[in-house]
Design a protein around this nucleic acid. Structure first.
Lengths: 333, 333
DNA sequence: GTTGTTTATGGTAGCGCTTCCATATTTAGG
DNA sequence: CCTAAATATGGAAGCGCTACCATAAACAAC
């Protein structure tokens, strides 16, 4: 591998000059620049990014921590962040946290140890205090889909309470009154807040929240499946179910079908997130549109602005979800 | 940030000794080791991985190139590779290639410029020659889900011809004879080979392949949807459709339903890949099980063995897919 | 011409580590 | 007790760059 030294020799200039043309931001005469460029070309020189990072203390890389590498929601999130950052010449180092405190901490520390210039994290298990403290270290932490008051300038989050509210409100408006709820793990802020929104909507309609209508799932298909089985086993009467995410809604559909329910007539279902596949479920899923791509882009812009001092205007910190009505819910006759 | 130098000072030993305890593979007395460990603890020292990489010429990172960061198939692939590598103390740098030649090259070059110790790539658009040439450079390239004869030792691939064959064979065995096929983009080896398998099965049953039964889709839901619309528009009679992946199969289902077909009675559907969600479609999808997780783990093991000289036995280079019969196909009465 | 400012280039000290060589020190074998 | 091997530590070069300081040349203003 050719080094900057060999380039300087071939071009007949000093190391500094080669470095200058590499960094394109200093006085170099056109003629000299061309000589250097030619030498690089001739040697097939590519800069060693590790050496640059060590010398400049900047890696041009931002760490991304997501809960899972698979999963529709995270896929869309990673994709959006990566594209935006890549367009600005930065790159991402992605690592999963698996929604477990140890693993999330481990992932975060790993990203810090790799000298990322910043971290965008979707963390669910670590505490607010831990994050605040970590953010005071050398690597700034940005949170996506989570709101921590003491570092709100670094958060891009969704109004999950509003989302949960909209979902349930929609069913109530359709005439449903016996509504069950399949939540995500309640230690996760997203899951907790969505449930809060559900309760708020019920309250507004004068319906008392009944613990018996709640099942805590795992945000995966099985969670929805098991939740519905649970309600059936309790002989509960209900005409609608709200799921805290789309994967669980698809599990509910599968279970309902196995119980010979006619969807959506016998059971109305609402999901949350509007991941890509919801439009291909049968029936197509009414869900809450989570603007995860916009949030990813915004998180990337926030990093570009604050860490890389690029000009990005209009950082929005809190996003509002929308209700998306499709076929899985209908008016009760 | 504490450096190795401060640790050495506090512990009262030389730089070299600190480096030795860091690397755990040289003569250091128990007593000295403890002193160093204590000093590290006290200073909250964490090694600077960039500096280590520069000095040792090893980054302990392997680059992963996948076509998309979202997408069920790639999610499962990344997840499997990452987990296996992480367990061995290596980490991954993931970048998308978007199935376009320029972008794939760009991604590969980027990973090389980041000094990855190896690259595991799922590339579809670049030529065999390019890969062979690239593999001769400083960074070894391993291919997943692609077979290139001149570098077959570096390939982990699937017998796609067999997969395509099994899918169509299954339908033929069920009594179907009017079978349409929705392929992926034919420049992609996976797509091409699966179609070859389909043709082979037809031939074996004495059925001539008819170009009119072929639609080339995009491996996404829309591809399946559009494919079915296309066949309908051609007034084609058929009782079954083979899709070259699961996403397209779900698009087919959606379209079929909109045309009031009763599934699976009116139309048998076979997918390919057996990604997670296929079990939650309605009807559940008969598909070809693509052992992508096993392949991912195997690719990781191959790198661990060849690049990091770890002991990994039984590298399997070619995997065989299985037919997975579910509800989307039934015997023709 | 003198002075000051802009433009252009070279020299060199690190960035925080690893690694090789040199030098003690300890242990084992006879 | 002597020698050789094994064990334990230090010293210093260098990985490939960046960044700061110094210097030189070119240009402008008076």
């Amino acid at each position: 591998m050719a080094t900057i030294y060999q380039v300087s020799e071939l071009a007949g200039v000093s190391l500094s000059t080669v470095s200058r043309v590499l960094n394109e931001n200093d006085y170099v005469s056109k003629k000299t620049k061309q000589k250097v460029l030619d030498a690089m070309e001739q040697l097939g020189y590519t800069p060693n990014s590790i050496a640059r990072s060590l010398a400049s203390n900047c890696t041009n890389s931002v760490g991304i921590l997501v809960s899972e590498l698979d999963g529709a929601f995270f896929g869309e999130m990673m994709s959006a962040i990566e594209a935006q950052l890549r367009a600005a010449g930065k790159h991402v180092i992605i690592t999963p946290g698996h929604s477990e405190e140890d693993k999330e901490k481990n992932g975060l520390e790993f990203l810090i140890s790799r000298n990322c210039d910043a971290i965008i994290a979707h963390v669910e298990a670590v505490s607010d205090e831990y994050l605040v403290k970590l953010n005071k270290g050398k690597t700034p932490i940005y949170l996506i889909s989570r709101y921590v008051d003491k570092m709100k300038e670094n958060c891009i989050s969704l109004d999950n309470v509003m989302g949960g509210y909209l979902a349930t409100k929609h069913l109530l408006n359709q005439g449903h009154t016996d509504i069950t709820y399949i939540a995500g793990p309640l230690f996760k802020p997203d899951a907790f807040d969505r449930l809060e929104g559900h309760k708020k909507a019920l309250k507004e309609h004068g319906i008392a929240f009944d613990e018996q209508t709640l099942f805590v799932g795992d945000f995966k298909e099985t969670g929805g499946y098991n939740g519905l089985e649970y309600f059936f086993s309790k002989k509960r009467k209900f005409t609608a179910v709200v799921c805290a995410n789309d994967e669980m809604a698809s599990g509910v559909m599968k279970c309902a079908r196995e119980h010979k329910l006619d969807l959506p007539k016998d059971l109305a279902i609402v999901g949350f997130d509007n991941v890509h596949f919801t439009n291909y479920l049968y029936p197509t899923l009414t869900t809450i549109d989570n603007p995860v791509e916009k949030m990813g882009i915004m998180a990337a812009n926030l990093v570009l602005k604050q860490v890389y001092k690029q000009n990005r205007s209009n950082i929005e910190h809190i996003f509002t979800p929308d209700l998306l009505v499709r076929d899985s819910t209908t008016h009760l006759v």
